[in-house]
Design a binder for these strands. Structure first.
Length: 574
RNA sequence: GCUCCCGUAGCUCAGGGGAUAGAGCAUUCGCCUCCUAAGCGAAGGGCCGCACGUUCGAUUCGUGCCGGGAGCGCCA
């Protein structure tokens, strides 16, 4: 049930009836809530096209709308606005229809198969704050796509095949470390050490590169060491993503694309796309219309090792054969935009995106950086990269401090559980309340505050609703039919529900979870005002009380669905 | 240097050819004998970076400039 679509259809039909083009009938949410709920500005551009007074056109259309019971007022205003107010009866009926529907009349789209690539952690490296955004934004997009009816496959796409593996293997060799006995903690220490050494020690860097090439070319001993490292790492990664509440359908890595890489090279060779350059193999991906310099994409380094673009192509081929998707989404850092432009072009040139009649759409949805208060990428106090587990630990610890200030009776276990949920919500909403593509500043105090656009604010709203509903159940007071709103607060709340459908479609179109956040804060704010101004259980009028309870139930269902789309859990108390 | 993104209230950010540009925080002032006050209300606060252009109309579109960020073949 998309109110904007419905109203646009209605008004467009009236424009047509008056001899104008349907496209002028677009209805938007009013920019002047004091005057109306919805508005149509189409008479203004129509006036130009048809050389008429816009107010006259608006009047012609408005006249045809008179008598439509959905509206309590249909007015025109200079220079040519059509202003619409929904009637209280219609609002109540609409809410009743939503409540009667399992998915609240929220839209289902035409089903597509979508692979979402939103992890990208490196094996042998602990998760750090840089992995947070990909995980929670990707997870939210995954949930949203699935909710809207698509078939979605989430793939973590671990980096387990590149130079970082060679670095770790070379470092372990140098130390004489036993791969079979290596622990997660060892790995967490080995990689940074190896990475640092490769920058100053040229011989070591060369050795690491050689080990990378050997791994990729199937050296059995190296492969055995590699497998050990990988297995240990994966268990750590599963724990890390588990703590975030982020799941994947496939725990594939670059190595799983390895069998496809020779085929990718064959395809490129057959198409005559491979070219030697400075001892390396490259594909030219520049187009005549390019405004920026577009260097060729590197497929094989001069030492014979593959680079990540190569494995990305192999992965694409794997996804095509395993899932035959309509779309493949890459949720990664902004800084990889250029890389993906190259890969996507190369894939298109190779013809590997063609699948029957359709062409697989590869789409990169980049996101900005999480910065510290200094506006620079978030670091620990000593300037190092902060581990994700440390970040989560400190957020949950701070959340627990807040939960412990609450005088609501809760057991220790309940407090810890609430703190975990509040902390994770603070992280997720703190991140996703901003548009995906923007950088934002990580501010724990602000994210954990109960006032403002925060996770805890949204959770608190749901908690107090559920508290009332629980009391109603205990007192055996049943919800009833939603009555037409009698007050502004009630009407405002009812008006927020029809906006959800449009918000979800916009969030999906832009791949922007922030649009889901916006509508959540809108509903929560309106509800909290309603809650403050009205008695519910103490309401003396029985049918009014039943109506308000139904309104609480409906609000709770909207909040629950929307929060779940963002991966936010609701504690039982707080 | 070239390419892309961004510049909106003291701060963090929405919005986007049309009416009086919106939230949240912060500040000030109010609201619990009552369903969770981790809540609600009110007030102040803006040359929408600058200039030119397109348009009946520009904060929104275009061009240039200034300021910030990122990227530009053997890392991922």
């Amino acid at each position: 049930m998309n109110i904007l679509t419905t109203l646009t259809e209605t008004i467009s039909a009236k424009f047509v009836e008056r001899g104008y083009e349907a496209s002028y009938g677009t209805v938007t949410v009013s920019s002047r809530p004091d005057l109306c709920h919805y508005q149509c500005n189409g008479a203004l551009p129509a006036a130009k096209a048809y050389r008429k007074n816009p107010l006259v056109i608006a009047g012609e259309v408005a006249e045809l709308l008179q008598g439509d019971a959905r509206f309590s007022s249909i007015e025109t205003a200079p220079p040519g606005f059509i202003n619409l107010r929904l009637s209280d009866q219609y609002l109540a009926a609409l809410a009743g229809d939503m409540a009667a529907d399992e998915r609240l009349l929220l839209p289902l789209m035409e089903r597509k198969t979508i692979v979402v690539d939103y992890g990208g952690p490196n094996v042998a490296k602990p998760l750090h704050v840089g992995h947070l955004r990909s995980a929670i934004i990707g997870d939210a997009l995954y949930r949203l796509a699935r909710f809207l009816g698509h078939t979605v496959i989430g793939d973590i796409h671990m980096g387990d095949w590149g130079l970082q593996m060679g670095l770790v293997i070379a470092e372990m060799e140098g130390r004489g470390a036993d791969a079979a006995a290596v622990s997660l903690d060892d790995l967490n220490e080995i990689y940074p050490a190896a990475s640092a050494r490769s920058k100053t020690d040229a011989a070591f860097a060369e050795k690491a590169a050689a080990r990378t090439a050997a791994l990729q070319h199937g050296d059995g001993d190296i492969r055995a060491v590699w497998k050990q490292i990988r297995d240990v790492s994966v268990s750590g990664l599963k724990r890390g993503y588990g703590a975030l509440g982020v799941t994947f359908d496939r725990w594939y890595g670059e190595s799983d694309a390895e069998p496809y890489v020779p085929r990718v090279k064959d395809i490129l060779r057959e198409r005559g796309l491979l070219r030697e350059s400075d001892g390396a193999l490259v594909v030219d991906v520049a187009l005549p219309e390019d405004k920026e310099p577009m260097p060729p994409m590197l497929v094989e380094k001069s030492n014979g090792a593959d680079v990540y673009g190569t494995t990305d192509l192999g992965t694409l081929l794997q996804r095509k054969e395993e899932f035959d998707p309509d779309e493949v989404w890459y949720v990664t850092d902004n800084r990889q935009a250029f890389h993906f432009r190259q890969v996507f072009r190369c894939a298109k040139l190779s013809g590997m995106l063609n699948s029957g009649e359709k062409e697989i759409q590869c789409l990169h949805f980049p996101f900005g950086t999480m910065n510290g208060k200094d506006g620079k990428p978030y670091k620990t106090r000593d300037g190092g990269v902060m581990r994700l587990s440390d970040l989560i630990g400190s957020v949950v610890e701070n959340a627990l401090r807040k939960v412990n200030e609450s005088d609501v009776p809760m057991s220790g276990e309940e407090r810890r559980e609430a703190a975990r949920m509040l902390g994770m919500a603070a992280l997720r909403i703190g991140d996703m309340q901003n548009h995906r593509t923007k950088d934002y500043i990580f501010d724990m105090e602000r994210f954990l505050a109960s006032e403002g656009k925060t996770g805890p604010y949204l959770q608190y709203t749901a908690v107090r609703i559920r508290s009332v509903l629980a009391k109603a159940r205990a007192a055996e007071i049943a919800a009833g039919e939603i009555l037409p709103p009698a007050t502004d607060a009630e009407r405002d709340l009812l008006l927020s529900f029809p906006l959800v459908s449009d918000a979800l479609l916009r969030a999906f179109a832009d791949k922007a979870p922030s649009a889901v956040c916006d509508v959540l804060f809108d509903i929560a704010g309106r509800f909290n005002r309603f809650y403050f101004e009205h008695k519910i259980l103490q309401c003396p009028d029985e049918s009014l009380r039943a109506s308000r309870l139904a309104l609480l139930e409906l609000t709770d269902r909207f909040l629950t669905i929307l929060l779940e789309l963002l991966g936010v859990e609701i504690p039982s108390h707080m």
